[in-house]
Design a protein around this nucleic acid. Structure first.
Lengths: 129, 129
DNA sequence: ACCCATTGCGTTATGGCATAACATGAGTCA
DNA sequence: TGACTCATGTTATGCCATAACGCAATGGGT
């Protein structure tokens, strides 16, 4: 497992994501980093691309937003499930072996060669219920 | 089970979706319907809202696009899984009882009250493999 | 028949999300 | 040195989605 050195921009974006409890859009990250010299969306998107690629952040498709990975060590063998609270917008991350193998079964049954999955749940979290 | 009457616009959008094998964005639907008097995105989005609500169409979050429902009778008790081929962009739809109960288990374990799920798989379909 | 609530329609304008294309600079390695 | 890679900065552009307005048609309920 190699440590990966983040550039200054990547570090700034990562810090911004980590400091937020709820997902942030690229543009809201941009706004928070204007004081640090950020001026264009691309500066954010490029950093996000890298962070997502190395697994330090995740993109939430249903929100067009991003979160810091809260999984201590993201298990590459399992699909990640995101639970997005409709009330507080906070996001919980989970993974489950049975779910992942089930997903693979579903794909296999359709002769579909699975490479990645987007699993985003909506509902209400325990704190808000 | 009540039959639902579609308006002219809704019918046009539905026909367009049904005629396409792969997902369509709202704007590409708009382009295909300009000859039928469509002029603005909202005309498409309003029809799509309705079609999605009554289950005749689905929104694919990871594509920002829409597909006609290919499920003969969409089972409300099961979550729908979309398999999107990276090669041909075609989409297959499936559902599975085990997967749905697994998903609920994962949510329960996090004290999350599940109301809806987005499950979109990427990979390669049988025809393209 | 009347009112009223609901639903859909059409238009203009606006806002949010994301990337293309081009040029620059820093670091590595043969 | 030269070629290559990766990150950066900037401008411009394009796609996705909705706000806000007003109007038209429908369908109960009294």
């Amino acid at each position: 497992m190699s440590e990966i050195a983040l550039t200054k921009n990547q570090q700034l974006v990562m810090n911004t994501l980590s400091a937020s409890k709820s997902p942030l859009s690229a543009y809201s990250i941009l706004d928070r980093l204007r004081g640090d010299g950020f001026r264009a969306p691309l500066q954010v998107y490029r950093a996000l691309d890298k962070l997502v690629n190395i697994g330090l952040a995740h993109r939430l498709e249903s929100l067009n937003a991003f979160v810091a990975c809260s999984h201590p060590a993201c298990d590459k063998h399992r699909n990640t499930v995101f639970m997005i609270c409709n009330e507080c917008e906070n996001v919980m991350e989970a993974s489950d072996g049975d779910l992942s193998s089930n997903l693979k079964d579903v794909a296999d049954r359709s002769d579909f060669s699975l490479s990645s999955a987007t699993i985003e749940l909506r509902g209400v979290c325990g704190r808000c219920a």
